[in-house]
C-alpha cells in the first residue's frame, strides 16, 4: 500500500512492488494518463509528480509513496478550464487528443516556473511529448498564448 495525493485528494492505493505509476493511475480510473510506449519515449503518460512533469511509465509506484500527483483530470478547476487547456482549444492544438494530456501538463510545469518562456524554452519543455498529428506548430502557439493570458491575470 502506498499513500498518494492525486489531484488534491490523499488516500492509500494498493500497489505491487513492480507496478509503475502509469499502471496504478489507469487502474484507479485516472485514464487521462495515456499509454503510448511504456518506455519514456512518447510522453503520453505525463503527470506532475510533486509539481514536475514526469513519464508515469518510468516511475515505480512505490517511489511516489507520499508524493502529490496531478493528472489531466485534476487540471481544470471544476468546470473552469486551465488557461493552457483553453489555449489548446482556441488554437487548434488538439487533434486526436492522445498526446494532449501530457503536453498540457508539461506546459503547466513550464509555466509554473517560467511565466514568460521563449519559443525554444517551450519546445524544450515539450521535447519529451511526441505528437504525430499536429507538427507542434499550434501547440507551441497555444502555450505562448496561455503564458500571455496567465501573465495578464496574475
Amino acid at each position: 500500500m502506498i499513500r498518494l495525493t492525486v489531484n488534491g485528494r490523499e488516500r492509500t492505493y494498493a500497489a505491487g512492488p513492480g507496478d509503475t505509476l502509469l499502471e496504478l493511475l489507469r487502474r484507479e480510473g485516472f485514464v487521462g494518463v495515456k499509454k503510448g510506449c511504456e518506455a519514456g519515449d512518447c510522453g503520453a503518460c505525463t503527470v506532475l509528480l510533486d509539481g514536475r512533469a514526469v513519464n508515469a511509465c518510468l516511475v515505480l509506484a512505490v517511489k511516489a509513496d507520499g508524493a502529490s500527483v496531478v493528472t489531466i483530470e485534476g487540471v481544470a478547476d471544476g468546470g473552469q478550464l486551465h488557461p493552457v487547456q483553453e489555449a489548446f482549444l482556441d488554437t487548434g492544438a488538439v487533434q486526436c487528443g492522445y498526446c494532449t494530456p501530457g503536453m498540457v501538463l508539461s506546459a503547466i510545469d513550464l509555466l509554473s516556473r517560467n511565466p514568460s518562456p521563449s519559443e525554444p524554452e517551450i519546445r524544450d519543455a515539450i521535447a519529451g511529448n511526441l505528437c504525430r498529428c499536429t507538427g507542434y506548430v499550434k501547440q507551441v502557439e497555444a502555450i505562448e498564448r496561455a503564458a500571455a493570458r496567465m501573465r495578464e491575470t496574475r
Binding site: V31, G32, V33, I72, V75, A76, L89, V94, G97
Partner: peptide
C-alpha cells in the same frame, strides 16, 4: 476556426478512448 466539438473532453482527459 471553431473549437473542435470534441475538444473539451480531450483537454480534460475524459475517458473517451477504447481502453
Amino acid at each position: 476556426s471553431e473549437r473542435k466539438v470534441d475538444g473539451r473532453g480531450l483537454v480534460t482527459g475524459r475517458p473517451l478512448f477504447v481502453p
